[in-house]
């Protein structure tokens, strides 16, 4: 479980996150939604330690993560997998080397064991015969799937996905959403997903947090979100004509 306790962050005097408090449960897909500039990505970067918070506390399974130095964070980091918006695959490596990279760095597995694990992870994201390809030879959806495979290769307890559907067609988005959902439940991972995609909210959101101007404006389940009378949230989720049809 990940707990955020009153975390705040500002850049150059501008408040990006204001006293955000929430929890993320294991085995659940926790969605963070909000408009552009609402603080979703900054919140995720704070949670993984890429950005330091100004105030508050971040806890992983009751252990304080915020404020630790690089050395003390290492055990936490090895439990974290992250899927970046653009995939962030290493260009100079093949698909296999990308997925094997965290195993090379932090395990004592033999080459055979590592290859088995890589093949398992690639199969799990429905990719076959891509081991020797370079990331530049992959489509956007395939890159995201390789990124997911790399993130789950070291068997993390926490999976962070920053807008995993951005730039993907609706069908591929559903495939990626379903993968995240299945992997989360299968391995009892705590998954946190930043998204703009309302389809993801409907399909995979166990818990939804809505950020508005850096504040946690609303949180609840998928059923709650369709019934809420929160004006800002309604404006956000029912902005499109298509989404208006979902309102109960």
């Amino acid at each position: 479980m990940i707990e955020l306790k009153n975390i705040s962050k500002s850049f150059a005097g501008r408040d990006i996150l204001k006293n955000v408090t929430t929890t993320f449960q294991p085995g659940h897909v926790n969605l963070v939604i909000g408009g552009s500039g609402s603080g979703k990505t900054v919140m995720m970067k704070c949670m993984v330690g890429l950005v330091e918070i100004d105030k508050g506390e971040i806890l992983y399974d009751g252990k304080v993560f915020s404020g630790l130095n690089r050395k003390d964070r290492k055990p936490f980091r090895q439990e974290i997998g992250m899927v970046f918006q653009g995939g962030a695959l290493f260009d100079s490596f093949t698909v296999e080397q990308n997925v094997m990279f965290p195993l090379n760095m932090f395990t004592t597995m033999s080459l055979e064991e590592k290859r088995d694990r890589v093949n398992f992870c690639l199969n799990r994201v429905n990719l076959v015969n891509v081991n020797k390809l370079s990331p530049t030879e992959l489509s956007g959806g395939m890159k995201k799937r390789v990124a997911i495979a790399r993130a789950i290769a070291p068997k993390p307890q926490y999976l962070f996905c920053d807008e995993p559907n951005s730039g993907l067609d609706p069908q591929t988005s559903i495939v990626i959403d379903n993968l995240i959902k299945e992997i989360t439940e299968e391995f009892s991972i705590t998954a946190i997903v930043n998204t703009h995609d309302m389809n993801s909210v409907v399909e995979i959101g166990d818990k939804i947090i809505y950020l508005y101007k850096g504040e946690k404006w609303w949180e609840g389940s998928m059923d709650d979100i369709l019934r809420t009378d929160n004006k800002e949230l309604n404006d956000f989720i029912f902005a499109s004509k298509l989404a208006k049809g979902m309102k109960r």
């Binding site: 992250m82 653009g86 962030a88 260009d91 760095m105 070291p154």
Partner: peptide
Amino acid sequence: GTMRVTEQIDALEIMGIN
């Protein structure tokens, strides 16, 4: 620089690599 702007360096940091 390309690794930085494409978040590859962030990916290394997340894994706990200096």
